[in-house]
């Protein structure tokens, strides 16, 4: 009964999955191939396990009847034959086909469908993502912009502990980010959209809110996005100039890079590069929207939103934090 309900309801409820971090709503060839593999395995094993559990229940029914009629116990050579056919021969056939399918799927998605033109480096930090476009000299955090319709080469590593890079709708599964190693994967979006990713290797106290946004945009929009990412806006507003002073007075510059303004010297635990902060749509790795109010509250106490994050609270006066936010909002 349960089994029946499960095998009927599961596909129904799964087909309804529309979450933007869903494995069954693929938007790339890699993720689609894996989803197809799943559906083949699901229907095959679904039918087989229904038969096995049905057989078990029928066996119980028979044995109850035998108990009433004092029958049963006809133990013979047939039992061994049955066990070998059902327990060894049948699974062998199924498994061989699964292995063939698995190897074919894996081989087809191990490499991208074409030569990637764009390379992105993603470096895991506790508990955020450093994102680099080495060909364009852009460094940002927690948000990746890619052009639609072209495979993107993704190289991942970690600056501290092991993280795992996973954007279920766009990449062929996840790949671990391991300190001292660089792993490669690829992404491709077939249509424009916003796709969510999340760290999938437990990386410490704030593993839960270490999320990632991938924005897939048409080629020309992407090129425009790239060319808009220029550091070093000239400041003329006194409030913004004051904000830049606060940035140094409050010690922000010891962890945060702003190209041309702040280059932290130590190689310890850096915070996200703020050069393009205002171009990001969220703060704290998708934890909150990047609005003036949220940015102000985040600076005053990031732990309110993301407990355990490495950034300390900054007890700034309302005036100072207002100036700082005004300055940060110029960082496109």
């Amino acid at each position: 009964m349960r089994r029946w309900a499960a095998s009927v309801l599961l596909p129904v409820s799964l087909s309804a999955c529309g979450g933007w971090q869903s494995t069954l709503d693929p938007a790339s060839p890699g993720a689609s191939n894996i989803a197809n593999l799943w559906w083949i395995m699901f229907w095959t094993t679904g039918v087989l396990s229904t038969l096995v559990i049905g057989g078990l229940f029928y066996a119980v029914y028979r044995a109850r009847r035998h108990a009433r009629d004092e029958e049963g116990d006809r133990v013979g050579g047939t039992e061994r034959g049955f066990i070998l056919v059902a327990g060894a021969a049948m699974p062998t056939l199924v498994l061989i086909s699964f292995i063939v399918l698995s190897v074919r799927t894996g081989a087809s998605i191990s490499e991208p469908p074409g030569e990637p033109e764009l390379t992105i480096e993603v470096i895991g930090h506790m508990f955020w993502w450093e994102v680099r476009y080495p060909d364009h000299d852009i460094t940002t955090a927690n948000e990746i912009h890619i052009p639609v319709g072209a495979p993107v080469d993704v190289r991942v590593t970690s600056a501290d502990v092991i993280h795992s890079f996973w954007v279920p709708q766009l990449a062929p599964g996840k790949v671990d980010m391991i300190p001292g190693r660089t792993n490669r994967t690829w992404m491709m979006a077939e249509e424009p959209g916003r796709f969510r990713g999340q760290c999938t290797e437990f990386c410490g106290v704030q593993h839960a809110l270490m999320s990632l946004l991938v924005v897939a945009m048409p080629e020309e929009d992407f090129l425009a996005w790239i060319s808009d990412r220029l550091p070093g806006t000239e400041l003329d507003d006194p409030l913004e100039l004051r904000g830049r002073e606060v940035f140094f007075e409050a010690g922000c510059q010891s962890c945060h890079t702003i190209q041309g303004v702040s280059e932290p010297e130590f190689l310890g635990a850096p915070g996200p590069d703020l050069t393009h902060l205002a171009a990001r749509s969220t703060l704290g790795g998708l934890t909150i929207e990047n609005t003036r109010e949220n940015l102000t509250a985040w600076i005053l106490d990031p732990h309110h939103f993301k407990p355990g994050v490495r950034m300390p609270p900054s007890p700034l006066s309302g005036e100072d934090v207002g100036a700082l936010v005004a300055y940060l909002e110029t960082l496109q």
């Binding site: 057989g55 035998h66 029958e71 039992e79 059902a86 327990g87 498994l95 292995i99 698995s102």
Partner: peptide, 28 residues
């Protein structure tokens, strides 16, 4: 992957041994 899937076979043999035991048994 192949080795992991292979473990299914001895597991399945045990499952069908139990089903066979019940099939011809008397369950009072």
């Amino acid at each position: 992957a192949a080795a992991s899937m292979l473990i299914t076979i001895p597991s399945a043999i045990q499952i069908f041994a139990w089903i066979a035991t019940i099939w011809n048994g008397r369950l009072h």
